[in-house]
Amino acid sequence: MGTEKTKGFCQLVVSSSLRDGVSHLIQSAGLGGMKHNTVLMAWPEAWKRGDNPFSWRNFVDTVRDTTAAQQALLVAKNVDLFPQNQERFSDGHIDVWWIVHDGGLLMLLPFLPRVRRNQSNVRRMHTAVKLNGVVLSKSQEAQLVLLNMPGPPKNRQGDENYMEFLEVLTEGLNRALLVRGSGREVVTIYS
C-alpha cells in the first residue's frame, strides 16, 4: 500500500483453501463500523482449465458469497488492459449497458473516473437476447464497457453454463467491468 501511496487497512486471513480464504475475507474485512460494501475481483481468464486454483466453481461461489453478504461485486475482464493507478483513460467514452435494476451502482460508476458528462453513453436494454452482438456493434470504440452481472442460477447444476454465458456476454470487448449491485439503493433522489 505504501508503494501505491494508498491509505487503508490490511487484513490477513489464513485458510486451508483459496475458496475458504476469499469467503472469510468477504465476511470479516473491515475495522469496526468501517466495513467494505463492494468486492473487486478479476475475471478468471483460465476458468476452463481444470488445474486452475481459481476455477469457475470458486468464482461462482464468490458471486454467491457477495450476494449473501449484501455486497456489490465488480469483475474486471482483461484487467491488464485497464489504466494503472495514476493513468487516466484516453479520450473516448464509457458505455453503460443497464439491463436490470440492482441498486443503481452501475449508473454511478461512470461518473467516478472524472469523465466529462457528455462522454458517458447510457443505453438501456431489457432483453439479453443477442446482447453481445449489440454491445459489440455499439461499443467497439468505448474505452470501458460496464454491464450488469446477473446472479448465478439457484440450481448449482447450471454454474458452468453461467460462466459460459458471462464469457459470451463479454467476448470481444477490450475492457469490460461486470457490475453486480447489492440490491440496496446507491442512487436516490438525494444523490
Rank of each mutant, 00 (worst) to 15 (best):
32 G>E: 02
32 G>F: 02
32 G>Q: 02
35 K>T: 08
36 H>Q: 11
36 H>M: 12
36 H>N: 08
40 L>W: 05
42 A>Q: 15
45 E>A: 13
47 W>Q: 03
48 K>M: 03
50 G>T: 04
50 G>W: 04
54 F>L: 07
55 S>L: 07
56 W>V: 09
58 N>E: 15
59 F>L: 04
62 T>G: 10
65 D>H: 02
66 T>R: 02
66 T>G: 06
67 T>W: 10
69 A>G: 10
70 Q>P: 11
72 A>P: 14
77 K>C: 06
79 V>M: 11
80 D>I: 11
81 L>F: 12
81 L>E: 09
83 P>Q: 00
84 Q>D: 10
86 Q>W: 05
88 R>E: 09
91 D>R: 11
94 I>R: 01
95 D>E: 05
96 V>G: 00
97 W>A: 01
98 W>M: 10
103 G>N: 00
105 L>T: 01
106 L>F: 11
106 L>R: 01
107 M>I: 08
107 M>W: 05
108 L>P: 13
111 F>H: 15
112 L>E: 09
113 P>A: 14
115 V>N: 03
115 V>M: 02
119 Q>M: 12
122 V>C: 06
122 V>R: 06
123 R>A: 13
124 R>G: 11
124 R>W: 13
126 H>Q: 10
130 K>G: 15
133 G>I: 09
135 V>Y: 01
136 L>I: 12
144 L>K: 02
147 L>Y: 13
149 M>S: 09
149 M>D: 08
151 G>M: 03
152 P>Y: 08
153 P>E: 02
155 N>S: 13
155 N>M: 11
155 N>W: 07
155 N>Y: 08
156 R>A: 05
157 Q>V: 15
157 Q>C: 11
159 D>H: 12
160 E>V: 07
161 N>Q: 04
165 F>R: 09
167 E>F: 14
169 L>F: 11
172 G>A: 00
174 N>F: 03
175 R>F: 14
176 A>H: 09
178 L>Y: 10
178 L>I: 09
179 V>E: 02
